[in-house]
Amino acid sequence: MNSHGESAAASATVRPLRSRTLWRPVILLTLILLATIAISVSIGAADVSWRAIASGDEIARAILLRIRLARVIVAALIGATLAVSGVTFQTLLRNPLADPFILGVSGGAACGAAIATAAGLARLPGIVPLVAFAGACGATAAVFLLARRRGRTDTTRLLLSGLVLNAFFSALILIAFSLSPQSDLTAALRWMMGTLAAATWSDAALLAVLLAAAMAVLVFAGNDIRMLAFGEDDARARGVDVERVKLVGFAVASIITGAAVAVSGIIGFVGLLVPHVVRLIWQRDFRFLLPLCAIAGATLLVAADLVSRIAIAPAELPVGAFTALLGVPFFLSLLRSER
């Protein structure tokens, strides 16, 4: 089985994992993201040229900057948020199938938002994100407690818990819908379908602040979070305060998921797809994956939103349906490869 000098890989050296090594992929992915944003802002249902803006066309300016750019930036921030949330859940739960949508965290957030809307609270600023966040935290706690057995999170139980929670939240959302004031129904539908059509600059500001804070916390805890990849006992023996790290990680991932869902509704599978694709290229630990997932997630959602806008323009597909179409086959192939 094993003997010395049998491996051809012996001569191949692994590039040490240092913060320096991170710059190349970060710059590469950022360039791709910027290009995707530029293309996405330039293309849309209304034919607006950059030249028209340069010549002082106010309408063109409004379409491009107030509407389209805001939407593209929100798409980028939500994509980044969901991917960051996904890679955090996957690392903390030591499970490649974890994702805020599959775990029911997005569903919990949407449920909170729908109930707030039904209660007529949607017009009070800040209430919907707050309730969505509460829903996300509740769902995280529930799925975590349900899936845990003898100190481990079992994959089957995790998926089943997410499935059951999602069904439960869907039922609550439907009830909330039927009780909602008629005028709020379109907004309410958003929680179910996932769409960026109503994105504004103030959404972008909220998401940007939360995402920046979340990234700061996750980087701060990154050296500890990545140690969980070897199991909780091992991490504990290496001086990691496992309970605290998990609490911080889950709280942060839930807060940003709640905010993302409050803005866009449920957009599934981004948190699952992105970390896996990034891992296919760079098989490294959490500290390395975190920034790359953020940028790649932003790119994916900007691109998906572009396709959902132009595929049957001037009508729109909900972007959540589109990411699910991409994500489901991927999820199934991952599930098949699970032992």
Partner: peptide
């Protein structure tokens, strides 16, 4: 020790320096 995601030996060993 069950390492969920693929890792090279050197990355595993260097994590012992944590």
């Amino acid at each position: 020790i069950d390492v969920t995601f693929p890792m090279t030996a050197i990355d595993v060993v260097v994590s012992g320096r944590a």
